[in-house]
C-alpha cells in the first residue's frame, strides 16, 4: 500500500501542539469575559478551527480521496439544516413551551 499518505512526526506533533495552544487560548479568552455575543463566537471559532485541524491532518482528509471529504461535508450541511429549520420555529414563539 505504497499509495497511502504517511504523516511525518513533525506534522503530527505540530498539529497536536497547535491543538494544545488553541485549548489554552480558548480558556484564556473565557477568563477575559468578552462582551456578550463575542465570547461564544470566539469560543466556537476556536473549536471549529481545532476540529478542522483534527479532520484534515489526523483524519487525513487533506490527503485523502475527495469523496470522504464530501461525506463529511454532507453531514455538516444536514446538521445545519436540522439546527436552522428548528430555530425558525423555536426563535419565533410567543410562549417558548406552553404549559412547561
Amino acid at each position: 500500500m505504497s499509495g497511502h499518505h504517511i504523516s511525518t512526526d513533525k506534522t503530527l506533533l505540530g498539529v497536536a501542539g497547535g491543538l494544545l495552544v488553541l485549548t489554552v487560548l480558548t480558556v484564556v479568552v473565557h477568563y477575559l469575559h468578552l462582551p456578550d455575543p463575542w465570547s461564544i463566537i470566539v469560543a466556537m471559532g476556536i473549536a471549529t478551527f481545532k476540529a478542522m485541524l483534527v479532520a484534515l491532518f489526523f483524519m487525513n482528509l487533506y490527503w485523502d480521496k475527495r469523496f470522504n471529504l464530501m461525506l463529511f461535508g454532507t453531514s455538516i450541511v444536514f446538521l445545519a439544516l436540522l439546527v436552522g429549520l428548528t430555530l425558525l420555529d423555536t426563535l419565533f414563539r410567543v410562549d417558548v413551551l406552553p404549559s412547561f
Binding site: T26, A47, K50, A51
Partner: peptide, 10 residues
C-alpha cells in the same frame, strides 16, 4: 472539542 467550551466555558 465542542463540548468543552459549550459546557465549561460560558
Amino acid at each position: 472539542i465542542f463540548l468543552f467550551p459549550l459546557f465549561y466555558l460560558i
